[in-house]
């Protein structure tokens, strides 16, 4: 087949899309990475299911031990930062540089606030005696369980599972915030244009994935 007979290449975000899948290679690379992340978090969730419902160890009611209202607010923060991310993407795809910068700043603020609230939550839990190794003797949680006549022993799995799952997610959000700060700096330097803004889309995919994972984790770890 001669070169003239080949199908015409489309352009998205200033990049030629690949022939095979119809997306540019940066986006495909991020999606492949996210596929591996799906398997990582699935393994954590599978382990959680086994530890919680497959073992004989007592498991406290998360809604009694964890601060659901605070975490629901945190979930809302992450959802808001996801919206600000897509608004940043929509802004630059219309050539709106000011909108891009403002929405990116809002995304960084939302992500940083999420991590801040999670650190605050951890500090309070540890203060109340909820540790990765179980509940501390004499801690506020232990006393509350005793007063309510609930089992006070054998909560090691709860502590380990809770801090592992939320900790790994928090690590992902922290990495996302750092990447987002870098992208925001580049945006302020005028790096992205209406024709070339694939970096915004690619980092946005990661950010939304982190939001999506939190939606699942919040339900399983905090509400079940």
């Amino acid at each position: 087949m001669g070169a003239d007979a080949r199908p015409q290449l489309r352009m998205t975000h200033g990049r030629q899309v690949e022939y095979g899948l119809g997306v540019y290679s940066g986006k495909l690379g991020m999606w492949v990475f996210l596929c591996s992340e799906v398997m990582f978090f699935t393994a954590l969730i599978g382990a959680y299911i086994i530890l919680r419902w497959g073992s004989s160890q007592s498991w406290p009611d998360p809604t009694k031990v964890l601060n659901i209202t605070l975490t629901a607010f945190n979930t809302f923060l992450l959802i808001c930062s996801s919206v600000s991310m897509v608004k940043a993407y929509a802004a630059i795809s219309h050539g709106d540089q000011r909108g891009l910068r403002l929405w990116l700043l809002a995304t960084v603020a939302g992500g940083a606030a999420f991590v801040g609230v999670q650190v605050y939550e951890y500090l309070h839990l540890i203060h109340d005696g909820v540790l990765p190794s179980g509940f501390r003797e004499g801690g506020e949680i232990m006393e509350a369980l005793t007063r309510a006549g609930l089992p006070t022993g054998g909560h090691e799995l709860f502590g380990a599972a809770f801090f592992t799952m939320t900790g790994f997610h928090g690590f992902h959000v922290s990495c996302g915030v750092l990447c987002m700060i870098w992208v925001t700096i580049k945006a302020f330097r005028g790096h992205y244009t209406q024709a070339h803004h694939e970096g915004i889309e690619v980092i946005g995919l990661y950010w939304h994935f982190v939001d999506l994972v939190w939606i699942i984790l919040f339900t399983i770890v905090y509400l079940f």
Binding site: G20, G22, T42, A43
Partner: peptide, 28 residues
Amino acid sequence: EPRRFLFVVLAPLPLAVILVVAVLQEWG
């Protein structure tokens, strides 16, 4: 996204189900 790209993106979902089923073999 193009439909053929969705096959790549959604590929880990059945694999995730298989992983969970495999982990559930440890039940009890």
